[in-house]
Design a protein around this nucleic acid. Structure first.
Lengths: 145, 145
DNA sequence: CTTGACCCTGTAGCGGCTCCAGGGTTTGCA
DNA sequence: TGCAAACCCTGGAGCCGCTACAGGGTCAAG
């Protein structure tokens, strides 16, 4: 099948398929006479796996490591479990960070009822002060927008 | 004061100060004879404000809008409140997303006790299946790493 | 007079795409 | 058979918010 069909079936933009190939996550398929990529069922399975992991917010290096752990001939569960545990840790940490952040934002928001000039606004005031610092963790999982 | 001192006092890398200037968040200061940037107290206040907003995970466009809302001569609280409410919404949405994500990850993790070859691992199995799709919102707030 | 700390500009890189320009190929229909 | 639309190709730029160079200039202490 050609790239368009593969992409449709895996629910993934065509450009992203080419990007995964360039990044070495998806094997380069053979080419047709007109230099079109020609994929088989194995490619689709693999791409679907990658997309599923991305939907779970794993980074591409994490997914790469996961694929390698699975494809080693003598492959055992343990490394897979470890990778997943680590990722769950990232997600949990990010939730904790954002929860603390939201509390702080709610507290700031409570400083104003919207009926004053900005010069007297409690929010502007609060944002100008040094304020308690959140201990931010580092994590690959993205923030809030 | 020169850029190094400003940066130290606002707890912000020097390169980031120059970046904010390039992005129009921080006014360009006057220059010394040797072309060094020369900042005053107002610059420090503004930079500290920006850093505080960044610590609250606001995007630079959000901060820009906030600064504009505050500095309009006839400035009123309402737009500031609205901006903050919107940002709080982003954070809340991201927390909800990540919480659903974590539940899914926990469920997947429960499929394996680590004593089997990867070919028989419930995790690998689960990651290969189509699976219920999370409805992902769009938000500027970052994910989980 | 030299060493080191500081400053300058400009450019490239990070992740994970996304989009564009500028081409070639295939497909369906008149 | 001709033609348009839909598909495919490569390569490069852009998104965000920095961060890290390279390759220079300036300044203060010893």
């Amino acid at each position: 099948m050609r790239i368009g069909e593969l992409a449709r079936r895996a629910d993934c933009p065509v450009e992203t398929v080419r990007y995964y190939e360039k990044e070495g996550l998806l094997a380069a398929p053979r080419r047709s006479g007109s230099n079109y990529r020609d994929y088989g069922a194995a490619h689709l399975e693999r791409l679907a796996f990658i997309r599923r992991c991305r939907a779970l917010d794993m980074s591409l290096p994490e997914i790469r490591a996961l694929l390698e752990a699975i494809e080693r001939p003598s492959a055992h569960c343990a490394p897979v479990d470890a990778l997943l545990d680590e990722h769950i840790g990232h997600v949990a940490a990010r939730i904790a960070d954002l929860t603390a952040l939201k509390q702080e934002l709610d507290a700031i928001r409570a400083h104003c009822a919207g009926r004053r000039p900005a010069s007297a606004c409690g929010i502007v005031e609060t944002l100008s002060r040094p304020a308690a610092r959140l201990a931010r963790r580092s994590s690959h999982v993205r923030g809030a927008k």
